[in-house]
Every structure is written in C-alpha cells, then in structure tokens.
C-alpha cells in the first residue's frame, strides 16, 4: 500500500513537471473533456436532481413540524454545495471515467503500445497521463457546479410539490440565496478539484502498472475505482476539517 502511495506521488510530481507542455496536448485534453462530458452529464443530472429532492424530502417534514420550513432552502443549498455535489460527482466520475482511464491505459500497457511510445522517445506521462489529468481537473469542478444547480432545482421541486412541505419557489430560493455564499461554492469547487486529481492519478497509476493480459486489465479497473472512492471518502473528512477554518 505504501509503495502504491509512493508511486502515485512520484507520478503526480512527474506530471506536474510536464505542466508547461499542457498547451501542446490541448487537442487530447479537449478529446478527454468531450468524453467526460459525454459519459457523465446525463447521469450527473439524474443523480443530482434526485439527491436534492431526497434531502428536501427527508428534512422538509421535520422542519415543517417545528415551523422551521423557511430554513429548507438554506439547508438543501449548503449540503449540495459543501458535501453532496463534490462527493457524488467524484464517485460518479471515479466509476465512469476513472475506470475507463485505467482500462485504456492498462490495455495499452498489456499490448505493448506504451513500450512502442517509449521506443519513439515519447513520454507516456506526457502523452497519456497529462491530458487525462488536466481534463478531469477541469471537468470535475464544472460538474460539481452543474450538480449543485440541478440539486437545488430538485430540492425546490420537492418543497413546492410535496404536500407535507408545500413552500413556494420564492421562499426556497430566498433562504438559499441568503444562506449560501460564494465561499461555500468555492468550498465545493476546491473539493471537486482535489478529488479530480485523486481519481486521475489513481486511475492512470493503476493503468500504467497493469500486467498479465485481460484479467490484469480487469483487476486494474477494479482497483482504480475502489481505491479512488476510498481515498475520496477519507480525504473528504480531512478536507472538511481544513475548510472549516475558512468558514
């Protein structure tokens, strides 16, 4: 496990040193961005609207009972911003994109395509890892913003149309706009960015160390997804503690 951590830190360091080459790889970054968007936007939309709705559904009746329904917008707004959108989108991207990254790089490793790159003096970190890490670092924070907005809409719809809650759109968004500040959005964006780096590095690292044919590729994909999600959930706690200092 410690060896894996060490290797991932080395990989991240090597890719960061290649950052000046990002502009040269812009074509591949755009390709990856398109793939990430294509593979996750619809799913992100469905997940976010239902998660926003479920929070409203769970908390709404409790607050109504205590006459505190006017706080519902703020609670849904904050929980989407600070916690649910970044973590949910990160888990989604780990499953859909991290797995694809590990599988693609893993099969390139197994079928000697990476060896071929090296014999042409093409650095696999620059050719394969840098565009993927850049794309995911841009895409995940954007998806987090998207998820927050859709989650709010989901929460609002439930608040308006559920007979046990029944507050207006205006009331919901009025409380939300008073409670949620730019710093809360930045909080979610920062988490999204850190999670993106984790998913990118874990998945590319697993892909690059794939051995042993199709079964090896399968193992790498599973490890990439599981390790990413475990790291995201552990790091989420520490990031939350850290970000509380800026609240």
């Amino acid at each position: 496990m410690f060896q894996n951590f060490g290797e991932m830190i080395v990989l991240l360091w090597r890719v960061l040193r290649l950052a000046p080459q990002t502009w040269r790889q812009r074509g591949k970054v755009m390709e990856q961005l398109f793939e990430i968007g294509n593979a996750s936007l619809l799913m992100a939309c469905i997940l976010s609207i239902f998660i926003g709705g479920v929070i409203a559904l769970q908390i709404g009746p409790v607050l109504v009972e205590r006459g505190m329904q006017s706080y519902l917008g703020g609670i849904v707004g904050l929980s989407m911003c600070k916690e649910l959108a970044p973590v949910m989108m990160a888990v989604l991207i780990a499953g859909r994109i991290g797995s694809a990254m590990a599988a693609e790089i893993g099969s390139m490793k197994v079928y000697q395509e990476i060896d071929a790159l090296q014999t042409m003096n093409i650095n696999p970190n620059s050719y394969l890892v840098l565009p993927r890490l850049t794309a995911i670092s841009v895409a995940l924070p954007l998806l987090v913003i998207f998820s927050i907005l859709i989650g709010w809409i989901g929460g609002a719809l439930v608040c308006v149309y559920n007979q046990h809650i029944g507050i207006s759109f205006q009331a919901f968004f009025s409380d939300l706009s008073q409670t949620v500040k730019i710093k809360h959005l930045l909080n979610g964006l920062f988490k999204g960015y850190v999670f993106a780096v984790i998913i990118g590095v874990v998945s590319c690292h697993q892909g690059l160390k794939t051995m042993g044919g199709p079964r090896g590729i399968g193992r790498s994909v599973t490890k990439a997804v599981v390790n990413s999600i475990v790291l995201i959930l552990i790091l989420d706690y520490f990031l939350t503690r850290l970000l509380q200092y800026f609240d």
């Binding site: 693609e104 099969s107 390139m108 079928y111 395509e113 060896d115 071929a116 790159l117 014999t119």
Partner: peptide, 13 residues
Amino acid sequence: MAMVFQSGALLNS
C-alpha cells in the same frame, strides 16, 4: 532507434 514489435504494437485508437 526503432523497434518493430512482434504484435506490431500499433496504437489502436
């Protein structure tokens, strides 16, 4: 230097 791999090792994408 160049190498011709047994499998060809062409980039499938």
